[in-house]
Nucleic acid binder design. Structure first.
Length: 489
RNA sequence: GGUCCCAUCGACUAACGGUUAGGUCACCAGCCUUUCACGCUGGCAGUAGGGGUUCGAAUCCCCUUGGGAUCACCA
């Protein structure tokens, strides 16, 4: 097997689509699996779609996901430049080669004429296709008129000439052999009237000269692959291997697109998903190495990756499982990293002044109860400052006749507790309950109310341990005061 | 509409001729319990339909049906 060289070739649209990430990821897994090279090439041949800063954004998002490139506009490489707008001469030269070989021709149709051609006549049975025997091109115009138009610098495009009787067959690693008749393939424009190449020309030329061995891309490219295969043949170049990945679908089973929201990798990152959870999830949208496991490290994915095991049918991009996967990673990821992820949210909530050790203890207290680290300030505001508000409904439900008496007793008991950890607090509460002949509930609920003000949270005793003795006693006494003053009635 | 691709639980998938069609998410029930979670146990649920081939078909072939992609001087 020759050297594996794959590429991710996005157009710089300003954000990274999850489908794009999946494509990049599979390219990456494939390259790493075979010890090959991963290349990033920017396809910016459409000048009207230029977005400032898009390339940096793309690289950043990919890097966040753990995908690095061996060759790219950023790190360079011997096959550069890696931005198509810097390679125009190459495309023009190769359009000329095609022209010389009779595989391409000049066409002079105006946009209006093309539009008229494409407008489906009522009852038409065939798809509108460029008919080079009818339209305005070098064949219908003749050599003299063509030269005249060229001399007077009339706008023209260069089209690929596909013989109607051609039978184009190519092999897709995932789908097998696919054959299309020349009759059904349109004479694709290769060079636009502004002199820029279209995707089809630029892509084939670049993949050839960058020595790309495998083209791994989305299934939406399948219909135009015959054109690409034909181009390789027309140039007399060896064709790379093709692999078309199944589409990522929305819940109505259609191609996932920007308009439906929730498709930009940047958004998922901002939402607080773990990179490893997100990548793990995306990787499993299309194949599963074993079928009985869900959690894989990137190294394992590289080891197990096999293009021929990738599914043929599209996968619905359903966030439910991603949520679950994220919670799985909360358990795995080291506390220090969780602290780091929680920092921005704490900062903006005004809780920035706490040290890593304390924040870490709070996180460990509640990490199995939250889905994202940025929920921390909202979930346990009482760990970072005085209780701002009490859940009145909870108090009404759980603060009973004897609660105050219990509270007062516990205050006295806990004041003498110098250990003040879960075991000591729990032990004392249990002993007290037994002595009074009551259950633990009438004790833990009032404790939770007094120390946190909320009905939901970590275990009451664990919470109190992290809160510390001083704070707890203070809050308990404060609550009794508030209670006596009728605040909660 | 033309061309091409696809078809296993609601979702993600495993089973590449021989399994009671497996796992995960979600959902439901129970257990655990100090609220909420986590966890544990169990349950619900699938080979689109019809023909072949074969001793044997989710798996191979054909047809039907359904879904999707694509048909730009976008990528």
């Amino acid at each position: 097997m020759k050297d594996v060289r794959v590429r991710f070739a996005p157009s710089p649209t300003g954000y990274l689509h999850v489908g794009g990430l999946r494509t990049a990821l599979y390219n990456y897994l494939f390259a790493k699996h075979f010890g090959g090279k991963m290349i990033l090439r920017i396809e910016d041949t459409d000048q009207s779609r230029f977005v400032e800063g898009a390339v940096d954004n793309l690289i950043n998002s990919l890097r966040w996901a753990g995908i690095e490139f061996d060759e790219s506009p950023e790190v360079g490489g011997k096959f550069g430049p890696y931005v198509q707008s810097e390679r125009f001469e190459l495309y023009r030269k190769h359009a000329q080669i095609l022209l010389d070989k009779g595989h391409a021709y000049y066409a002079f149709d105006t946009p209006e004429e093309l539009l008229a051609m494409r407008t489906q006549k009522p009852g038409a049975v065939v798809a509108p296709k460029y008919d080079r025997l009818v339209m305005k091109n070098q064949y219908t115009l003749g050599a003299i008129e063509t030269k005249r138009l060229m001399d007077m610098k009339a706008p023209y495009v260069i089209r690929l000439r596909i013989p109607p009787d051609a039978e184009i067959t190519f092999t897709d690693i995932i789908r097998g052999d696919i054959t299309v008749l020349g009759w059904d393939v349109d004479d694709q424009i290769l060079l636009k009237s502004d002199g820029y190449p279209t995707y089809h020309l630029a892509n084939v030329v670049d993949d050839h000269f960058m020595e790309i061995s495998h083209i791994i891309r989305g299934e939406e490219w399948l219909p135009s692959t015959p054109k690409h295969a034909f181009l390789y043949d027309a140039f007399g170049w060896e064709r790379p291997e093709f692999a078309h990945l199944p589409l990522l679908l929305n819940t109505s089973k259609q191609k996932l697109s920007k308009r439906q929201g929730d498709v930009a990798v940047e958004d998922f990152r901002a939402k607080g998903y773990f990179r490893s959870a997100f990548v793990n999830f995306i990787a499993l949208l299309g194949f599963n190495p074993t079928g009985d496991r869900e959690i894989y490290t990137i190294e394992e994915l590289i080891e197990y990756f096999d293009l021929s095991k990738v599914n043929k049918s599209g996968a619905v991009f359903d966030l439910t499982k991603l949520e679950w996967m994220n919670t799985q990673y909360i358990k795995i990821v080291p506390t220090s990293e969780l602290v780091e992820l929680a920092r921005p949210a704490l900062e903006s909530a005004g809780f920035g002044g706490f040290d890593d050790e304390y924040v870490g203890r709070v996180i460990n207290l509640v990490k199995e109860r939250i889905h994202f680290m940025n929920e921390l300030p909202d979930f346990v505001p009482y760990m970072f400052g005085d209780i701002k508000e009490f859940e009145i409904e909870y108090i009404k439900k759980r603060w009973e006749e004897n609660s105050k008496e219990i509270a007062l007793d516990l205050i006295e008991i806990y004041k003498k507790d110098d250990v003040f950890n879960h075991d000591s607090l729990y032990g004392a509460a249990k002993a007290y309950a037994e002595e009074k002949g009551i259950k633990l509930g009438p004790i833990t609920h009032p404790l939770r109310i007094m120390t946190t003000g909320k009905s939901v949270g970590a275990g009451a005793f664990e919470t109190m341990e992290v809160l510390g003795k001083e704070t707890c006693i203070q809050r308990m006494e404060k609550f009794i005061e508030l209670w006596d003053s009728g605040t909660f009635i």
